[in-house]
Amino acid sequence: MDTIIQCENITHYYGSKLIYENLSFEVARGRILGLLGKNGTGKTTIINILTGYLRPYSGVCRIFGEEMGRLSPTVKSRIGLLLEGHIQHAYFNAVQIERFYSRFFPKWKRDAYYGLLEKLRVTPEQKISTMSCGQRSQIALGLLFAQDADLLILDDFSMGLDPGYRRLFVEYLKEYVAAENKTVFLTSHIIQDMEMLIDDCIILDYGSILLHEPAEYITRCFRRFRFTSDATHCPSDNGGILRHTEKIGNRWQTCSFATAAEVEHELKKNGVIPDGLTEEKLSLEDAFIGLTGKY
């Protein structure tokens, strides 16, 4: 299995604030990896490190085997980059920006770009700076399709988009990635959108990776358990079976990858006698909150 992205022992600080310590992960060819994390956990930072726009305190990332910060033009031509907020050269209009980028990429697919523009009724002469965020997102997506890159790095692709444009972006991207066997590394604040797209998921906590598993495994195995109990003391997480156990009055909830029997056993071990224990399947967003907490 080819490794497209490889990060080894990335440690980074902003001033004295630790962002990551010894962060390591890999992305294999053809996989779509979503990076999730609360605000300030360093999602954009890792994208900046990956693409060579931030030198970490220590550690190394490689894309297609080349070290970040020293990517060759050949490797850059294989990476499609979407900046946070669908930032593009706003002084161009839709035709000019296609003309500009087309000279740089040998596999440029002009029809893919204009096909998307036609479907979305974007006026070719309209200047990008006057477009809505939704229209800009389609320009950015069209350019990514036309570039025909082997790896797409998408930073917060849903930022600023209304639900319609978000869905449109996700559907087009999903279809394209599946058809062309592309590798994708993406971040988003809207986890429902990511859920429709991703194969694997990294959940970042402050300073480290909390979880790196297939998204399907997380939604299949991670459950929320509700019960009542007169106990007063909440068991601590301690990285054990129970995650983010909370209580309001005598109503309790906890999350876990364990089975109901294992959860019940763990609760009893911690002095909580559960009554009427029920388990619920979770969406990726609920699983994310279950793993990281609400605040």
Partner: peptide
């Protein structure tokens, strides 16, 4: 200035050129 606005210089430096 347009290159530095929203850090668009990233896009320019990401072009497959030296």
């Amino acid at each position: 200035t347009p290159e530095m606005h929203n850090r668009r210089l990233k896009l320019t430096l990401h072009l497959p050129l030296d």
